[in-house]
């Protein structure tokens, strides 16, 4: 494998490809290949890896966002 390339997981739905840019616990952080503003957080279905489960509520969304933030801060330190 070319050292300048990396293999990434892609989830295709609604006619778009979403790249998995991060996974923390069972949260999947996906971003549209063609639009960096189009980002979402979903949960992995342990019984079916092709299924992306929605988050339960705003609290869970904020919690997932905070986990991402913390990881980003740690990576920059």
């Amino acid at each position: 494998m070319d050292t300048d390339t990396i293999e990434v997981q892609v989830y295709s739905f609604d006619g778009k490809d979403y790249f998995l840019i991060e996974k923390i616990k069972d949260y999947l952080y996906l971003v549209n290949e063609k639009d960096s503003h189009d980002m979402m957080i979903r949960k992995e279905d342990v019984n079916d890896p092709d299924v992306l489960l929605p988050l339960d509520d705003d609290d869970e969304f904020e919690q997932a966002l905070l986990l991402l933030t913390r990881k980003k801060i740690e990576a920059e330190e």
């Binding site: 390339t5 990434v8 295709s12 290949e33 979903r42 092709d50 299924v51 992306l52 929605p54 705003d58």
Partner: peptide
């Protein structure tokens, strides 16, 4: 992200440039 239906996606893998994916990740996050 919140509420609504579960999404059934087609999973695959793709080779991309490390710097490109890093930029995409940085912009998105």
């Amino acid at each position: 992200s919140v509420g609504g239906e579960a999404i059934r996606a087609r999973r695959s893998t793709r080779k991309v440039s490390k710097s490109w994916i890093q930029k995409l990740k940085e912009k998105a996050t």
